[in-house]
């Protein structure tokens, strides 16, 4: 299954959850310090484990910007 993560294409096993992807990326699966959008829609952190990725999904990970 191919998905795009932050603009880069990645091959993932079928049925990978969003929490699984975050673990692959080296992030804690609870992802409480990052924000995820899939195909332009905001995903609540509590839904990461139950969110199954699909072929062609575009995933963007947004960290809070702290510079001022």
């Amino acid at each position: 299954m191919r998905v795009t993560v932050d603009g880069e294409r990645r091959d993932l096993p079928e049925g990978t959850s969003l929490a699984g992807l975050l673990e692959l990326l080296g992030e804690p699966a609870d992802g409480r310090h990052l924000l995820v959008e899939i195909n332009g829609r905001f995903v609540h952190p509590r839904d990461y484990a139950g969110c199954t990725l699909r072929e062609g999904d575009r995933v963007e990970i947004v960290y809070p910007a702290f510079g001022g």
Binding site: R32, H33, F42, H44, P64, A65, F66, G67, G68
Partner: peptide
């Protein structure tokens, strides 16, 4: 509001109506 490089972001928080900072990012990195 915050910036990083050429990127930036902002969010208006209206307590009791819309999301707050911790609705988006429950814990700080």
């Amino acid at each position: 509001g915050g910036v990083d490089g050429a990127g930036g972001m902002l969010l208006a928080v209206e307590p009791g109506r819309g999301p707050c900072l911790r609705c988006l990012w429950p814990d700080p990195p």
